[in-house]
């Protein structure tokens, strides 16, 4: 008897807690194209994924802030990140950034994720590229991008 009551109370607390925490802390993934067409609500934390545009990486004078373009081969968005970038961050690579869009349309990243494998492409990024890869005149490598 005690057993069942304790278990049920525990389970319902868990469900309530999980739902509450989920609502607060789920992050959607978006592509640069979705951001440009305005499908993404402002002032909300989300994940942006794509390829780092070759030749787009600019270091600010403070030595820590980096601006770079992120593209899904269709549209591109400027991403700004202050801090040390991960070891494997480089031009042409597939990365995922986590942050918010500011009023100027710059994605201010709080975190940049690049995985520890030179041949790794985040699956969301790989999927988003599929759509536009074929419309690209020439191979991805000609543009300095790593193929998924």
């Amino acid at each position: 008897m005690i057993f069942t009551v304790v278990l049920l109370v525990g389970l319902s607390c868990a469900v309530a807690l999980a739902l509450y925490a989920m609502r607060q802390n789920i992050m959607l993934f978006h592509t640069p194209s979705e951001v440009v067409t305005g499908e993404v609500p402002g002032n909300r934390l989300f994940r942006l994924g794509g390829l780092v545009v070759a030749g787009s990486v600019i270091k600010a004078d403070d030595g820590l802030t980096t601006d770079f373009g992120l593209t899904d081969l269709n549209q591109s968005i400027t991403v700004r990140y202050t801090g040390l970038l991960p070891d494997l961050f480089r031009e042409g690579q597939g990365i995922v950034a986590q942050g918010v869009l500011n009023e100027e349309g710059v994605f201010v990243a709080q975190e940049v994720l690049a995985k520890h494998d030179e041949n790794y492409m985040p699956p969301e990024v790989a999927a988003s590229l599929k759509e536009y890869r074929d419309s690209l005149p020439g191979s991805m490598a000609e543009y300095g991008y790593e193929a998924p």
Partner: peptide, 18 residues
């Protein structure tokens, strides 16, 4: 469905509450 991720804040909150 649109891809999403459940991050550290979810786990931090839920786990410490328990």
């Amino acid at each position: 469905l649109p891809s999403l991720s459940v991050g550290k804040p979810y786990f931090d909150l839920v786990f410490s509450a328990l």
